[in-house]
Design a protein around this nucleic acid. Structure first.
Lengths: 138, 138
DNA sequence: TGTCAGTTCGCAACCGATGCGAATAAGGTG
DNA sequence: CACCTTATTCGCATCGGTTGCGAACTGACA
């Protein structure tokens, strides 16, 4: 995701308006490696801007996702998480504390796949489950 | 997933009862490669047993999943799909028609992963997106 | 056949997410 | 700087998927 100042330009260029709510979310998301949910962002945003609506958070998140600035990732059936890292990468989920970390997998594109039977893969997403450094103990 | 007759034994052994509803679902799921949702199974079950409750379908699916006879898989934020194939495998999803097919990936366990930073992976799940043989055209 | 624990099933509730519409505010123009 | 247009905010209602609850029911064993 681009920086808050770049996003201001990008939004205006598209005829979209730059509101305080949006700017706050730009800041909360920039360089955020937490993979927050809409609800988590709403909580953080509310602390700095009481009265902001959850609806607005959802709205801005989907705007940013549509613009390619954000990647929406979902695990299992829980709420969606948002990732400002839009590079080609994958995720590791800690089953203990729920932490999500970005991982880069070499050779993900040349995996030997059996059973494709004519299926033409366009993309692959890999999710590792396990325990993170903090939860694995020492 | 084991065969309907084996499941009858397994259920009784665990003190669970074998009802007509459950037997019907055993049959609908056995050798099913469609990865149906609870709703889809409910529709099929209703055709053969009018009056069966969606609640019962959910109940039995979660029983079977708890017993390890079924694997619950979810893609994006949509409804959960149930897979009687509990072997170690992955999935390919057709973005056109929504078909889900089982695939087997060699070397999935020795992928070169960067960024783990102490994370200990216990399992990996890979989802391919693309177009299936029927939808890819020829 | 009787007894009892496990089941079924409808309804309400829940969660994450989205549609709608009135009030509000951004931002270009005169 | 005031104005006007259009986008945005935000609360509320709604929706889809799923689960909790509890009364009535029914397998399964004695």
């Amino acid at each position: 995701m681009r920086s808050p100042v770049e996003l201001v330009d990008a939004f205006r260029t598209q005829g979209l308006k730059v509101t305080p709510q949006r700017q706050l979310l730009f800041r909360l998301l920039h360089d955020n490696t937490q993979h927050p949910t809409a609800d988590a962002l709403f909580a953080q945003a509310s602390a700095q801007m009481p009265g902001i609506s959850l609806r607005t958070v959802y709205q801005t998140l989907s705007d940013l996702t549509a613009m390619g600035e954000l990647q929406q990732v979902s695990f299992d059936t829980g709420p969606a998480h948002f990732d400002p890292n839009v590079a080609d990468h994958h995720h590791a989920v800690c089953d203990v504390c729920g932490a999500i970390i970005d991982v880069y997998v070499d050779g993900a594109d040349q995996l030997a796949i059996d059973g494709l039977d004519g299926f033409r893969p366009a993309s692959a997403s890999i999710v590792f489950h396990g325990s993170c450094a903090a939860c694995a103990g020492t």
